[in-house]
Simulated assay, not measured.
Amino acid sequence: MTSLVAVDWGTSSLRAARIADDGAVLEERSSTRGILTVPAGGFPQVLQETCGDWLADALCLVSGMAGSRQGWREAPYCACPAGFAEVAQSLTWIAPGRIALVPGLSCEHAGVPDVMRGEEVQVFGAMDLLRQRDGTFVLPGTHSKWVRVREGRVQSFATFMSGECYALLRQHSILARTLPAEEPPLDEAAFTRGVHHAQDSGSLLRSAFSARTLALFDRMQPPALASYLSGLVIGEELRARGSEARSVVLIGSAALTARYALALRTLGVAATSLGSEATWRGLWALARTLEKT
């Protein structure tokens, strides 16, 4: 296989990896030059500054927000169901045969579109690493994604604004007055209590206020309240998914996947966790698919 430079270019950061023919990561680099810091027309220069010495005679696949309207060039979404072949065929080429943007995926629920850009590569990487062609893949974050995969293709997915909702409640609601300014270490007992209460209350609109009343009646201390609120928000996400799966694959940062694994385990759902290796494996698998087409 042609040598590969894999790039994950997000809103606030840029990561790149040089990947061997067998999928091994030879070297990684990162910078704070996310797409919001790049002026119009500046993407080629930033890429060159980050990993230009890797690019000679290499294929470069770029995933993430670089393919958005605010990025290098808009890469139209690939509609679900979609697998390796469909995404490989939908690449937007910046330099034919050399540099391409990965398109992201779209699906619809009741006539309303949903999208992901960057997470699809992580799902494909997890599928390849785990040799798993069916299942539910969960990508926690600011906008969490629940992805349903069947026979090696993403059938559909759903987005939950859980991380953003937590930040809004944590920093800009009445609850902020009783929560510590800095995020304390996870209190597992308070967190799982929040997860359980989310299942019983039926709505985050109702359960969120309990973070205030528990403080008012001195039934929970401020450091624990942050974990409790986190449990409420993540618990609401799990409640909304219902009994969709009895096991899931989590993909994301170690700290966040650990919270989701704890919440899932509390509700009797098993979880396998992967980190950044899923991104590099996904881009490598797409490059390998290109060679076969």
Rank of each mutant, 00 (worst) to 15 (best):
S3H: 12
L4T: 09
W9N: 07
T11W: 00
A17E: 05
A20M: 04
D22A: 06
A24S: 13
V25Q: 04
R29K: 14
R29L: 11
S30Q: 15
T37D: 14
P39Y: 07
P39W: 08
P39H: 10
A40I: 03
G42L: 09
Q45M: 08
Q45E: 15
E49V: 06
E49F: 05
A56Y: 00
A58K: 01
L59A: 06
C60F: 08
V62M: 05
G67E: 14
S68C: 08
Q70M: 04
W72C: 11
A75Q: 11
C80M: 11
G83H: 10
F84K: 07
Q89C: 02
R98V: 02
I99N: 01
L101C: 08
V102K: 06
H109K: 09
R117Y: 09
E120S: 04
Q122H: 03
F124W: 06
P140D: 10
T142E: 03
R153P: 00
T159K: 13
S162F: 09
G163K: 08
L168E: 00
S173K: 06
L175V: 13
A181S: 02
E182F: 00
D187W: 02
E188W: 01
F191P: 02
A198S: 12
G202D: 13
L205R: 10
S210Q: 10
S210N: 08
R212Q: 12
L214K: 08
D218I: 01
R219C: 15
R219D: 13
A224D: 08
A224C: 02
S227Y: 01
V233D: 11
L238S: 14
A240F: 06
R241K: 10
G242N: 10
S243Q: 10
S243G: 13
E244S: 09
A245H: 14
S247L: 07
I251D: 12
S253A: 11
S253T: 14
L256E: 08
L264E: 13
R265V: 00
L267E: 15
A271V: 14
A271Q: 07
L274K: 07
R281Y: 03
G282Q: 05
A285L: 04
L286W: 04
L286I: 15
A287H: 09
A287W: 10
K292V: 06
K292E: 08
